[in-house]
Amino acid sequence: MASISPDNHGLRLAVRYAVLILIALIFVFPLVFMVMSSLKPAQQLLADTASLRAFLPVGDISLDNYARAFQRAPIGLFVFNSVLVTGLTVLLCLAVCSMAGFAFVYLNWRGRDLFLSIILATLIVPFETIAIPLLLLVSKLPWIGWEGVSYGWLNSYRVQIIPWIADALTIFLFVQYFKGLPRELIEAARVEGATWFQIYWRVVMPLSGPVLATAAILKFLVMYNQYLWPLIVVQQEKYRPVMVGLQYFFQLNIAWGEVMAYLTMITLPVLAFYLALQRAFIASIASTGVKG
């Protein structure tokens, strides 16, 4: 077996870093292009796309596109709506799906495997196929509010949140993760007289940081990027989320600088959320490849 000389090792390390930097650049370039373009006037932006200048803060740089973007659309309102809807959905989804996962893994009840199979089978059903039936359903559902009972959920936050709380992928993630936790912990808690909810809350959830982060990030991205559903259930500007708001910028002559400024601004919450949970997310991804 040939030994690895220090020179050889250094070369391999250099090649590895070069490949990783190249891959990182490929992923970072679109973001850099977006931010740089948001600082340039339309004519320059389009002219720069033919060269590397597209990725550099050169030429006539200013924040004018941001100012005009704010004039064109109520960006603050759209971001608030999206963050509210996304945040509440993520929290409720984590609570409901983790409890469902817990019930599928730790509780013995008749039909458990069949129910899990049915839920997982819904993963292959594209949302577009159920969008219209779901629209018809939510347009007639009752709601009890301050003014009594009303019918129809259209034009509200709840219509953007409630149908998205439970989802098969998140339940699947929790099921898989819970299966990997030591059974002895659960049994010990049962012997100590803990209730199932106490076990869920005090034993299982504190050990579930990685899967919570993963599920939260995936759900956040799905919810923040929602377009079709809010498009068909929300007709009032006051409930519109950011992705539908993007359409405000596509007029006959598209102001690409404003589009890029808007995209830069609405990307910030996603980046902030990802960076906040990045460590746990990577830990979770890494743990999926490790056999215990």
Binding site: L135, G152, Q235, E237, V244
Partner: peptide, 21 residues
């Protein structure tokens, strides 16, 4: 008045028609 972005308008109207809205 409720204004819609043009790119989303037709789909919004069709959806609203289905929902009786």
């Amino acid at each position: 008045l409720e204004s819609f972005p043009q790119g989303a308008y037709n789909d919004s109207v069709v959806a609203a028609a289905l929902a009786g809205n």
